[in-house]
Write a protein that binds this DNA or RNA. Structure first.
Ligand code: MN
Ligand code: MN
Ligand code: ZN
Ligand code: ZN
Lengths: 132, 132
DNA sequence: CGAAGTCATGAGAACGATTCTCACGCGGCG
DNA sequence: CGCCGCGTGAGAATCGTTCTCATGACTTCG
């Protein structure tokens, strides 16, 4: 049942692999278009959706609500520190946070617990280029 | 320079006070409408926006991207454990998490750090009523 | 009180990211 | 060749949210 690997999907995966940072579907679409790869926007969305379901990419919501995608180095559960200006990303572990989160939720009688933990900031490069 | 307290804004605040849980702008609008208070949807949005800027309400994004609003008991920084079915909310503190977050981000040379930490689950009531 | 100025309201249009529709293309298989 | 299942993509549709703008309410000042 694996999805068919088409030229378009390969292009999306390749673009993700070259880009180390979180990018929106539209940014990826633009990137592909710029390099001559012709891929429809709807197809980019579908590819990202499939990859997300297969845990091949991580998805997070920017502060403005836009979804950002990234092909992370590790497949295991982890979180991110993301530059809100350029998307630069650092993967972070939080064993402490993990146990804290599940403990707190269980103590309140909640089930099916999930957590959203993301850190946002301005990376050193963006700080330097925006002010000095 | 405080915003003018109109009938509409008072109604929004009152609805928020009576509802203990996170609610969307549209849910609040429907609630007001149901109780006979006539308030435009745009006005509800504007009131919530103003309240959020004044830190009178907390805002968070549901998994589907919709914004949810709540008048929290405490004004200080805190996080939430929210039932994804009914919006039931428990305010939580995380001193450990706070220091962990800022430490991690600073270690990577990031500035203007913010964090998003929200816990989602199914509350005891929703679990009981949905299955058994 | 009354006029002018300021801000709030609300109906509907506009927005923007995402999803859906559907006609079409492609490749495999018999 | 004809059939089938699925991927594609252009454009329409969705949906929460914001914007526009004509109108109304409240404040200030004469
Ligand atoms: Mn975690
Ligand atoms: Mn915090
Ligand atoms: Zn940056
Ligand atoms: Zn619940």
């Amino acid at each position: 049942m694996a999805a068919r690997m088409t030229r378009q999907r390969a292009a999306v995966v390749e673009a993700l692999d070259e880009l180390a940072d979180f990018r929106s579907a539209q940014q990826l679409h633009e990137t592909l278009r710029a390099r001559g790869e012709s891929v429809g926007l709807a197809t980019v969305y579908r590819a990202l959706q499939a990859l997300a379901e297969a845990s091949e990419v991580d998805v997070l919501r920017a502060e403005d609500g836009e979804s950002l995608y990234r092909r992370c180095a590790r497949r295991e559960h982890h979180h991110h520190l993301v530059c809100r200006h350029c998307g630069r990303t650092v993967e972070i572990d939080g064993p402490t946070v993990e146990s804290w989160a599940s403990k707190v939720a269980a103590a309140q009688g909640f089930d099916d617990i999930e957590h959203t933990i993301e850190l946002w900031g301005t990376c050193a490069d963006c700080r330097a280029s925006s002010k000095g």
